[in-house]
């Protein structure tokens, strides 16, 4: 028996918003520690890694490890039926071919349940190697989303260049070019608005705008985002989901042919 209950359905709704542009289907691997999802996007350019820890749920029970293969567009349709303040419970029997979502209104006066067919998905076993990054940059997630959106108007790629003075985002194309430089903040009133850079050595890498924009769909999950970069390895864009886990996106840098 698997059962996971969240007091607010909004977290799960936001998680789904954050992955459904990249993945059409995915396997949620559930065990004692919580729920894990790891999948390459449809075009195999990026990888999504989601962790929701058992202790972040209001109630969590997983008697046997279970993999729930879900069609994300169907799951999204079902979650749209939940009110933001509703409690959501995901349930599945061992070896089940369906999963059930139960939504309960705050006053318990409305209880809905939706059963969804599970899919048998080919499991792709990927390993994420421990990596030391040359630069990590922490900034406001809303600021990062804004930068990606603004620079997308200029070209298909964004160059991210990190030095100890700050980080610079650039794009160029037919209409001209754009540069946004953020200095490391000396002091701020709100911690989430700070720009914090940790740098071993400077790095400049180029990434596809389209993917960075897909990643920023996770903005509402966290006030801050962390970018980790090293030469010739995928960029990590990490959103920490308060009290329950994180979502990380890995994107290969563009390389000149």
């Amino acid at each position: 028996m698997f059962e996971a209950r969240l007091l607010r359905s909004s977290i799960l709704k936001k998680v789904l918003e954050a992955i459904k542009d990249l993945l059409t289907q995915a396997t949620f691997d559930c065990d004692d520690n919580g729920i894990q999802l790891q999948a390459m996007d449809n075009s195999h350019v990026s990888l999504v890694s989601l962790t929701l820890r058992a202790d972040g749920f209001d109630k969590y029970r997983c008697d046997r490890n279970i993999s729930l293969g879900m069609n994300l567009s169907s799951m999204s349709k079902i979650l749209k039926c939940a009110g933001d303040k509703d409690t959501v419970t995901m349930k599945a029997q061992d070896n089940a071919d369906t999963v059930t979502f139960v939504f309960e209104s705050p006053n318990q006066e409305k209880v809905s349940d939706y059963e969804m067919k599970l899919m048998n998905l080919d499991l792709e076993h990927l390993g994420i190697p421990e990596t030391e990054y040359s630069c990590t940059i922490r900034l406001s997630s809303a600021e990062f989303a804004r930068i990606c959106r603004d620079l997308s108007q200029f070209g298909e790629s964004i160059v991210i260049s990190c030095t100890k003075e700050g980080v610079r985002f650039s794009a160029s194309g037919d209409i001209g070019s754009a540069n946004i430089a953020l200095a490391q903040t000396a002091s701020v009133d709100k911690e989430e608005e700070a720009v914090v850079i940790e740098m071993e050595e400077p790095v400049t890498l180029t990434f596809a705008c389209q993917y960075l924009n897909y990643f920023t769909k996770a903005t509402s999950l966290s006030p801050q985002v962390q970018l980790s970069m090293s030469a010739d390895v995928p960029l990590v864009v990490e959103y920490r989901i308060p009290d329950i886990g994180h979502i990380r996106y890995y994107l290969a840098p563009k390389i000149d042919d």
Binding site: L47, G127, Y250, A252, I255
Partner: peptide, 14 residues
């Protein structure tokens, strides 16, 4: 194609 090579090499089967 090179982008895909970078990502698959990085996440090679454990």
């Amino acid at each position: 194609a090179k982008n895909q090579k970078v990502i698959t090499q990085f996440f090679k089967n454990p």
